[in-house]
Write a protein that binds this DNA or RNA. Structure first.
Lengths: 332, 332
DNA sequence: CTGAAAGCGCTAACAC
DNA sequence: GTGTTAGCGCTTTCAG
């Protein structure tokens, strides 16, 4: 491992000068040239660990997400990564698997490794950001709001739920069920609230409290949970004629079950809050409220970088809206 | 930031003893207790940066993949992460985006950050591992073999290509096309070779050199490229009656185009080397040669950890086979 | 503009 | 078993 001292010796300058060259402080042109030459010849790369120890910071940010296998989050990660690497930062992707303990471990590592900041889609309401915030490091919340007074980028979830449901109502469906994520996750709760209010606004019989209960299911935000919920719904004495899926994977699960039972959309109406990832389905049959995942990542990364740069304005929350893409096919 | 000295003072011992407690070397029971108590009271977390600088290593491994948005690679990442975190390592996920330069940057960072090792699915044949290997750090290749004498975990790609093609032949298809990834990526080339040899073995007319050329397409390993290739194939004067997709996303793209043209499988035969991620299609219509992505990640991570632990046996290459899941529906 | 020197927090000899 | 001490490679005052 070649160090700053090796380079200094070869270039005939002091280590401090080499450091300055690599950090952009004023050094005379000749010395800069000499240092660069020596560095190139020795194939020198500054040791980031040493720099981190000295400066108490590192050009690394952590991105903590609940499910690395969900394309929604990987798309978001792409956005984060693109702006971060543009700015010379690398991003450590941490998969919390929706577990608060794993999440806490990663947050602890972020501290111990002197990372510059973290972007987090929290596992649940229970997530504690106390430790990381007490170090003074900036934290930006994505996708899910937190109880802390920090920057955030979220989706207009209620509006997305309303839009998805309305699209189904307009297409002529009447008995519209809802399958969402865990009740204790606010994004899931908000989308469900949107569904309820759209039903109520349309004065549909399904909007009665009893019916609402019968037609609503809280699953996980994954394919399997959604499948089970969809099966249940179809086995109801009076099954729904349409369903709103609370996220992309729930949409996949629901449509899988429907397809297996020969009920491909639009025989049963389907609207998804989110995009169907890698769908092989005719894109005209299902309404999607597309969520700007990449943009979310980009925005969050920019905010974090600003904070790392010392920006101290009051915490901001950016709300992004989903874009409705109506099914073109109408009810059979 | 509380340090080892603060803890030492509070516990009435020397800093070295505190260090020993946190590193499992022999310390008397009372002192261990005193140190743990003091550490807990002060909310002490060892500073990993300082440790890394001192030990010239860190409990971090890099996983470099060409496409973070491909579920095949995220599934692999899950496997890596599970065994790594079990062993107390964290993994930095680096998306090379199939670009050799980005890849080189990440590899450089892995060195500069003293990471313990790297698992890499190379962007192309051109990938240089010289710099990282010259530091003595272990590197394990996944999915794609390299020209270096290092550990690797790969798929039996030729066999997978053969299996996919044979499945179509058995189902009665005769004019079987192939859409694969970039020609300069060996996994793509091997799968294509499998397709060719299965065709030849069956003595199909499509196996003539001229036909082979007409029926073969090299796209990207992504949805868009596959779509274009599938369009081309269908617009041929004599279009194919079946197609082998070289990876999961190519399968998605091909089926999308087919569906849009009203040619849902099994009207045209489709076999995919890989799984259709999040498919909403009836799973009976398409043959998949499922690739053990997670297992690959697990195996690679275990090998890497062994090397990090000092294992110096000759380089090993583990070859994993895909598992054929035949379409149940037969040709219309 | 440039060099000397003092650490950042930790570990690993080396003594005792 | 435990303390003392010398760095790991870098940045950053402080002089000059």
């Amino acid at each position: 491992m070649t160090t700053i001292y090796d380079v200094a010796e070869r270039a005939g300058v002091s280590p401090a000068t080499v450091s300055r060259v690599f950090n952009g402080t004023s050094v005379s042109a000749e010395k800069v040239a000499a240092v660069r030459k020596a560095a190139a010849e020795l194939n020198f790369t500054p040791n980031r660990t040493a720099r981190s120890l000295r400066t108490q910071s590192s050009e690394v940010i952590a991105l903590v997400i609940p499910d690395i296998e969900n394309p929604y989050f990987t798309e978001m990660a792409r956005g984060v990564e693109d702006v971060a690497s543009e700015a010379g930062y690398s991003v450590v992707l941490c998969n919390s698997d929706s577990q608060t303990e794993k999440e806490a471990t990663y947050l602890q590592i972020a501290i111990a490794e002197h990372m510059s900041g973290v972007i987090i889609a929290t596992a649940s309401e229970a997530t504690s950001l106390d430790a990381i915030l007490s170090t003074g490091r900036p934290v930006v919340a994505v996708d899910r709001a937190t109880r802390y007074d920090i920057d955030g980028v979220v989706i207009a979830n209620r509006a997305a739920g309303v839009a998805a449901t309305e699209s189904l109502i307009e297409a002529g469906y009447r008995r519209i069920a809802y399958i969402g994520g865990p009740e204790d996750i606010d994004t899931a709760a908000d989308r469900a609230a949107g569904w309820r209010s759209a039903l109520a606004a349309a004065e549909l019989p399904a909007a009665s409290p009893a019916e609402l209960g019968a037609l609503q299911r809280f699953a996980t935000f994954r394919v399997d949970g959604a499948r089970a919920a969809m099966e249940e719904l179809l086995d109801l004495p009076e099954p729904p004629d349409a369903v709103v899926a609370g996220n992309n994977l729930i949409g996949v699960g629901a449509i899988q079950v429907l397809t297996e039972r020969g009920l491909t959309p639009p025989q049963i109406g389907v609207a998804v809050v989110g995009s169907l990832p890698f769908t092989t389905l005719s894109p005209t049959a299902v309404t999607m409220v597309r969520l700007p995942a990449r943009h979310m990542g980009v925005t969050a990364a920019r905010m974090l970088l600003e904070r790392i740069g010392g920006d101290a304005q009051p915490a901001r929350t950016v709300v992004l809206r989903g874009e409705v893409q109506h099914a073109r096919a109408v009810r059979a």
